[in-house]
Amino acid sequence: MWKHFKFNPDSINLSCRTDVQFNEFDRLLQFEWNRALAQGLFTFQIDNQIKQRVLDGDLHYIVELNPSRFEKRRMPYAFEHVNTPFDSNKFNFNKISEQEILFALDDEQQTDKHLVIINNSPIRYYHVLLVPDRQREQTQILTIDSLLFAFRFVLSSAHPFIYVGFNSLCGFASINHLHLHGLYMPDRIFLQTVKCSPFHPETNCYLHTLFDAEAVAFEIKHIEELDRIVRCIHKVTSYLAASSVAHNLSIVKGDSFSDFSQPALRIFVWFRQPNIGAKPVDRCNLACLEMSGYVFLRYEEVFHDISETELREKINTLALPLKEQQKIKDDIKTLLDQEI
């Protein structure tokens, strides 16, 4: 049976500006990930000296070259709808081996509730998947419980650049079994410090308008706010899923939107044009990581010549029509009014 880690709300650190790198949680994650690596459970041998560059520009995009991620991973499924029934005949996380489970982020009475497992085709070292309640065969639609799991994962780590992301179906999710991605960013990304404008202050909600494809952004400055803000975020993501709107979510430590001198947990939810069907890779795909300031690439020539300007232009093409985008924002405000 795998190990367990119990979340401790008294030992969290929200800062993205600390020199502290690892604690007991991080050491457990890395020890178990390295154990899986030694057991040969990954589809390729990831290079710890992976090629990396930081793009010129205001956002300092971090770009890494990882062709094996594209060439040797399991073929992603093609989805036509954000809401797609679970198909037990396709790959899902009930088909993995026990060795692929690193640990559970819960107490020992919940042996299969919040599992942290390997991604067997990792984006970078210590890339993991967060799989909540896998036996329930939940589709790729966020639940309150999965959001709490994601927040506790980030809050348990001492690392300033710990990251959790989620892609909906048609938002570049490749498997229709509820999961989120967890990894250490190689450095601070712009999402941790970017300024956002007030949108619904009563629920700690802001608007991220750096790209034409906008996002609502929430902040949590105190652990006491966690449950309330999770309910607000879940209302937003449930509305998007029910409205068949593709979306991406990112969770990072960063500066408070309302007071840059104070640390906070930042949560971004983008609503975007859907990616329908197969996922062709030309220069780069655009999912939660790419929206956040980090890009991994397949082709060396793209790695050398991609620019921040190109990335901005590509992300801008994901914007929904202005009328539709405005309706989504109006509907979100109405939903958040119910939480006041």
Rank of each mutant, 00 (worst) to 15 (best):
L226T: 09
Q52K: 15
I50Y: 03
I50D: 01
C16Q: 09
R27H: 08
L55H: 09
L240D: 08
V295C: 12
R231G: 01
P280A: 05
R53N: 14
T84Q: 05
R27N: 11
F172G: 00
D259A: 15
Q338F: 00
E224G: 12
L240V: 03
R188M: 14
I118S: 09
R27W: 09
F161Q: 07
L59T: 00
L155I: 01
L115W: 01
L130V: 13
K314N: 13
L265H: 04
E301C: 00
R298H: 01
K72F: 10
G293E: 09
E308S: 06
E219Y: 10
A217N: 15
L14C: 05
S121P: 14
Q109R: 12
Y206I: 04
A241N: 15
Q99P: 02
D56G: 08
G171K: 03
L249V: 15
D331M: 12
Q326T: 13
G57D: 01
L41G: 02
L130Y: 08
S244C: 13
P9T: 09
Y299N: 07
Q49C: 08
L226M: 13
L210I: 06
I118C: 14
I62H: 14
A78Q: 05
V63N: 04
P132W: 04
Q110N: 15
Q109S: 14
H114D: 15
I233D: 01
A213E: 04
A264H: 08
S168D: 11
A173N: 03
L183E: 15
L320V: 09
I123H: 06
F86Q: 04
A217H: 08
F5C: 06
F7E: 00
E98G: 13
S146W: 07
V131N: 04
P274M: 02
A215Y: 02
W2Q: 10
K3N: 11
H127I: 07
S292T: 05
E98R: 02
K333C: 15
D58H: 06
F86E: 04
V295E: 02
H222Q: 12
I229Y: 05
I12F: 11
V252M: 08
S146Y: 06
E98C: 04
E71A: 06
L180N: 14
V230D: 00
K221P: 12
K6Q: 13
F7N: 02
V54T: 13
I276D: 05
S11A: 13
H234F: 00
A319Q: 03
Q273P: 00
L65Y: 05
L59E: 00
T139E: 12
Y77V: 00
A78E: 10
N23A: 12
F166Q: 10
F218Q: 03
